[in-house]
Simulated assay, not measured.
Amino acid sequence: MSRKKMASPCVSDPYQLDFRTLHLLTVVHREKSFSRAAEVLGLSQSVVSYGIEKLRHVFDDPLFVREGGKTVPTERCEAVARYANDLLAEFDAMKLQQAFDPSDITATLTIACNYYERSILIPAIVACLRQEAPRVQIEVIDASGSGHRRLIDGEADVLIGPYQRADAAFFEKTLIREHYVCLMDARHPLAKRSPTLEDYLDFEHVIITYGGLWISPYVRKIEGMGYRLNAPLRVPSPAGIDRIVAGSNLVATIPRRLAQIRDPSLAIVPCPVDAPLDVKMVWSVRKHHSLLMKWMRERIASAVAGLSL
Rank of each mutant, 00 (worst) to 15 (best):
Q16I: 03
R36A: 13
D242N: 06
E90D: 15
Y180L: 08
G68Y: 11
T108E: 14
A259C: 06
V158F: 08
R256A: 15
P270H: 02
R187H: 14
V27K: 04
T209D: 14
A7N: 12
A107F: 10
S248Q: 07
K95F: 14
R135L: 14
T110K: 02
Q98E: 12
S33D: 11
P255S: 12
T196K: 02
K4F: 12
R149L: 12
P270R: 01
S103E: 13
S119L: 04
D86I: 10
S302M: 11
Q98M: 11
A166D: 13
N230H: 15
T174E: 15
A246D: 04
E172K: 08
A79G: 05
Y116P: 02
Q164M: 07
S216V: 00
I261D: 07
R297Q: 11
S33H: 06
I300T: 01
R130H: 11
I105S: 03
E39F: 08
L121R: 02
F171G: 04
D242G: 12
S35E: 14
A252G: 01
D157C: 03
Y210Q: 12
C77Y: 03
Y15R: 13
A231Y: 05
P264S: 05
G226H: 02
I300W: 00
I111Y: 03
E155M: 08
N230I: 00
D142M: 01
G51Q: 10
C182L: 11
V40M: 05
G247D: 11
A168Y: 11
A133F: 09
L229V: 11
C128R: 13
